[in-house]
Design a protein around this nucleic acid. Structure first.
Lengths: 337, 337
DNA sequence: TTCTAGATTTGTAGCGCTACAATGATTTGT
DNA sequence: ACAAATCATTGTAGCGCTACAAATCTAGAA
């Protein structure tokens, strides 16, 4: 008695199969997906219907190999730990979608992981590669330069890998410092970040110093922390500044999260914000809008950075320009200052 | 005068080029990357050195096409808006790295975007596809079923697409409810989420009701909100519960973020937490550890979910099992209850 | 009806890489 | 010293798709 040989395993579908099922040539199927307008409406809908029925999805790898180009952009993110890159990724997706591209992202928390991610993405032969400024593996720059894949570095300055896209961090730092000075603050403490993501904000401190110096105020109330994540850092800062007995009347934090942590700590200690001490954050996070008092912050137009990155990647003319693409920012004065 | 024709454009490098430069056959270059142990140490290091010098990165698409399999896992995330998926993605990356795979992720905020993302990932012929439970496009399940790519759905229950991986949300909800009851709370308000991500937590409410009923307590103090993001929702909840004049003595929130918002609102109104009202969150976010009072919450072992998802995807035996892969969770009692 | 421009559709020839089998080089056993 | 076994390396064929040119069809124009 012959067993019913029923390979439940759905055999790999190819364009060939769809073509056969729809009664057209493989080339027509290909055209339906890539250049729909080249195919007669009737034929196209028929082919697409059959394809959907079979669950056929074109093999992008084969397509890329044959056509030499894909419609996928690769992005590397330094972390997902906090929400600061949310609007950036949204901008990337919007910009890409408008031009018929998809965005795949890889998360890399160390320079080594980043390098590996870039190799994978380059291996996939993405149409463009969006990096984020930060500490990179030395090898990365060379690799990017040798590759013919367009590269942009977001939040980067003059020495970007590929072309830089981002807002003028120095100008934002100046503006925020001037805002505090204008409010009558005199002893302004500045919190710097060492390591991770540091390069992304390396212009904050010099700009702060310059403004303070220009106003004849002390520019040496500076403290450096290791990581800008978590509320804990904010508490730490307040502790440290008070331990050193520095009577500061304002505090510039590297992120809203740190600033929020600082405010929590001030509340705990009964230090009135903003009366006794003003606190400013950076980045316009959700939390800054919600805590009491609401937090003064710098709002970068991160979605514009994402969209700008895509524009640079997909437009050779844009890419050829040397100067970084500058996006905007805004100082949001709120209750905490 | 003949112009110097100097195509700065680095011509596309192929394995062929590397082979020529290294004085070996293309096949040997291929082996160096794919099966290093098959090649003599001396030859291998020489080839790899030449490749690095030229900036050659193997074309994964071509490799996939030829070999029929890739070492890339695709993951779709519902959002990056908050940090709840951070540990999940970390688990995915760790699990994948251990088995020599890379993870690429796509962010999708609507069922339509999710479907498009799945199509792209399937088009890339990833070795496995990791989904997250939530509202899906109807087409998605069919597509996943027809495809021969392994699929898992994280945070999913019995009716998962592919195999489900996640902790027992119902059990966690029961445990948290019992915790509050044990603390002497009697009128416990429950906040449910409609829409986005709702399915991921659909077992929370029934479990809550059952525990309350079993304890002879009111199980109808339920409120539904649309989105679980942002502190605003927390404030809203407190407003609404008070507006309806329901004297609740405890509040179960869908996420720590919402719970934090609720606590902020309570502070604003002078409602003492936990004396007058206990507040519990869900998800063990950073903020829950930092606010005053610290927040009681449910800590899912999200990295275990990520690692489990990879294990299921890459191990056919695992994949064949029907019951969802269960990961653990923990109730973290803190100051707010 | 015949012819032509235009719209559609269809072969052909690879894209860069790897499975597989076959070759060449080297060592081991006797 | 020679066959056998082991190891390292190399052709060959083809993965699924698309650029391109060639073939076919359609609808007027003459």
């Amino acid at each position: 008695m012959p067993e019913a040989i029923d390979s439940r395993q759905p055999r790999k579908l190819t364009m060939q199969d769809v073509a056969r099922a729809a009664g057209v040539s493989p080339m027509t199927v290909s055209n339906c997906f890539r250049y729909p307008e080249r195919v007669q409406e009737k034929t196209r809908s028929q082919v697409l219907r059959v394809a959907a029925e079979l669950g056929y999805v074109p093999n992008l790898s084969a397509g890329l190999l044959a056509a030499g180009s894909s419609r996928v952009i690769g992005a590397v993110l330094p972390s997902m730990r906090n929400s600061s890159f949310y609007r950036y990724t949204a901008g990337l997706r919007e910009g890409a979608a408008e031009r018929g591209h998809a965005v795949i992202t890889m998360i890399a928390e160390t320079p080594e992981e980043e390098l590996a991610a870039v190799q994978t993405l380059l291996g996939l032969r993405v149409a463009g590669l969006a990096l984020v400024a930060g500490p990179h593996a030395p090898e990365l720059r060379r690799l990017a330069g040798l590759s013919s894949t367009p590269v942009v570095e977001s939040w980067a300055g003059e020495d970007a890998i590929g072309r830089g896209v981002g807002y003028d961090v120095g100008a934002a730092s100046s503006a925020l410092t001037r805002h505090l000075i204008a409010q009558g603050r005199r002893r302004i403490g500045f919190v710097d970040v060492a390591g991770g993501g540091g390069m992304r904000y390396s212009m904050r401190l010099p700009a702060f110093r310059q403004e303070m110096f220009a106003a004849g105020l002390p520019d040496d109330l500076v403290m450096t922390i290791r990581a800008a994540d978590g509320f804990g850092a904010g508490a730490q800062i307040v502790d440290d500044f008070l331990a050193r007995d520095r009577r500061i009347d304002a505090l510039l934090c590297p992120t809203d999260v740190v600033a929020a942590g600082a405010i929590f700590e001030c509340n705990r200690r009964g230090l009135a914000v903003p009366v006794e001490i003003a606190v400013a954050g950076w980045g316009d996070y959700d939390i800054g809008r919600q805590i009491t008092p609401t937090l003064t912050t710098v709002a970068p137009f991160s979605d514009a950075i994402g969209r700008g990155a895509i524009a640079v990647l997909l437009d050779a003319e844009e890419r050829a320009r040397a100067a970084p693409l500058r996006t905007g920012f805004e100082i949001l004065p709120r209750e905490s200052t």
